[in-house]
Every structure is written in C-alpha cells, then in structure tokens.
Simulated scan of single mutants.
Amino acid sequence: MTNYQIITDCTCDLSKNIYEKYPLLILPMEVNLDSEVFMHTKDFQNMDAITFYNKLKNGGVSTTSQINPETFRIEFEKVLNEGKDILYIGFSSGLSGSLQSSIVAKSLLEDKYPDRKIIIVDSLAASAGQGLLVYYALLNQEQGLNIEENEKWLNDHVLNLSLWFTVDDLQFLKRGGRVSGAVAFVGTALKIKPVLHVDNEGHLVNVSKEHGRKASLHALANRLHETIIEPEKQIIFISHADALEDAEFLATKIRSTTPIKDIIFSDIGPVIGSHSGPGTIALFFFATER
C-alpha cells in the first residue's frame, strides 16, 4: 500500500516545480526578523527570498524557532484522520530540536491511532540536502514503494548524501558560534571563504578555508567530482541565498568535469539563511561517503 503522506518542513528548500508536482506536505516555520515574526512557507508567501536577504545585507537580524510538539501533533492528526499513514523526513537532529518535537507528537498519537503508522526519518541534513532525500522519497512512493520500503531506502542512503556549503559573509557564522570574532575579522579582511560540510551526525563542520569566492566554488565542484556515485544517473541540487550567478558558475564548473544527468536550483529559505547569510551556496549529491 502506498496510502501514506510524506511530510517535511520548509528547511528542505525544494524548488517550486517539485513541491507543486508531488503530494508533499511542507510545514512552515517561524522566523523573527528585527523583532517582527513571520511564518516562512514553501512558497515564500510572507516574504520572498530577495527581500529577506536585502534586509540582512542592510543590517537586519534574523532568528528562527523550531517546530513545537503541538504543531506536529495538530498537523499529523489531520493526516491520520484522513486514513493515511505518515512518513516524516525531518531537519537534521544535529542542527535543530524540531525532529525531537516530531517524536514527542508521535508518542502522543500512537495510542489514539493504533491502526496507523507514523514513521520519522532523521535526514541528518539541511536545506536542499534534506530536500534531496524528500525528492527521492516522493519518487519512491510514485514508483510503488510502501512506507516501510521507503523508510529503509532513506535510512540505507542517508549517509551517502553529501552536503557542502560555502558562505560569503563570516559574520553570520560568528553569530551562530561557528567561528570566533577574531577568525571572522581576519577572514573577512583576507577574503577567506570557508567550505563547510555536514557530517555523519548531522552537524555542520568547517573543512577548509579558500582564498576568494571563486576558489571556494571550485572546491565544491572538486568535492563532487572526487566522490559522486554514478554521476550520469544523478540529479543534483544547488541551493543559493540570493546568489544565482554564483550558483550557475558552480553548475557550469561541475558540468565541465563531471557527466551528471541534471541540476536543479532552489532558493535557500530564511530559516537556513538566517544562520548562513546572503550569498551562501550549497551543493547536494549522493557520494561514496558524506
């Protein structure tokens, strides 16, 4: 039976053509920008990406809130009342407490709906890396995999999902405690651009420091070329924070060295963008290892 609802949250940063094509439920998340709260939705209904990043470039300060258990309970129960099971693919537990909130909601609902399944998968990923797992889950469902088969596929492949980022402004990493104030100051002065990676525990780690923007983008392309599995069969994702030109540069570099099937671009939403800042570029693909 494929009568189950795939659910994720808006940190997945999926492109519009994907979420419009498939029966996916994407939960919104709360963003506080200069003391004004808005809900970030899949379609940027309350604030578009360009407006959001322009505000950050002009000194705006943005913080985010995880999804609470009650929100999960309400949204899950709507689906269960429709007679459907649930496959929830969540934002990395190494970066947010939202996944734990979903587990609490599951525990509150299991006794009330003993004939329904609620399966939770930790993507151990962020942005369109989480989205890439969701995309494959949707394809699996379309091809007839039942909920347990889909869960197994996701868990079997999650540590082959490779996630690489580079940021343009170190001050946002400083605010989040990823780099010290001294490192941010020196790095900014020397135009150092860090290359970051999401590890097997779903944590964001600093891997290397490149001198200049183009060097950091070349580093991302090289990581893909060295580790990608069966590139000619893969659709890879590139997400960006109001930096389409650099995303396209990265795509051109990748295509010049690696025979991939296709590339899908998407905007990094304000939940992830609040912590990485304008100009962030992120690359996602399946590889020999994370």
Rank of each mutant, 00 (worst) to 15 (best):
V104A: 15
L87F: 06
K112W: 13
N68R: 08
L109K: 02
T41L: 01
E36W: 03
S101K: 05
K106M: 08
S96E: 06
I86S: 08
Y53T: 08
M29P: 09
G83H: 09
L87S: 14
V79W: 05
D48H: 05
D34W: 01
I50Q: 14
E110G: 06
A105I: 01
S107R: 08
G90N: 05
S101A: 11
I50H: 11
S101Q: 06
K78S: 13
D85H: 14
G60A: 05
G83K: 06
L25P: 14
F72H: 07
I103H: 11
E77D: 05
S102Q: 06
D111Q: 09
E30H: 05
R116Q: 14
S101H: 02
E110I: 13
F91H: 12
T41C: 03
I74K: 09
L33R: 08
N46C: 02
F38S: 04
P114L: 09
T41W: 03
K78V: 10
L95D: 12
I26P: 04
M29D: 08
K55I: 14
D43M: 04
F72W: 03
G83S: 11
N81V: 03
I103N: 15
K57C: 12
G59L: 05
V31H: 00
I67Y: 07
V37Y: 08
Q45W: 03
P114N: 11
N58T: 01
I67V: 07
T41V: 00
A105S: 10
G94Q: 01
V31Y: 00
L27N: 05
K106D: 12
E30L: 06
E30K: 05
V61Y: 08
H40M: 12
K106R: 15
A49C: 15
K78F: 07
A105G: 09
L99T: 00
G83L: 04
S96L: 03
Q100L: 10
D115E: 13
D115M: 09
T71H: 10
L99W: 05
E30G: 02
L99A: 10
E70T: 08
E36D: 03
E82A: 10
K112Y: 04
P69I: 02
D111Y: 06
E110L: 08
E77P: 11
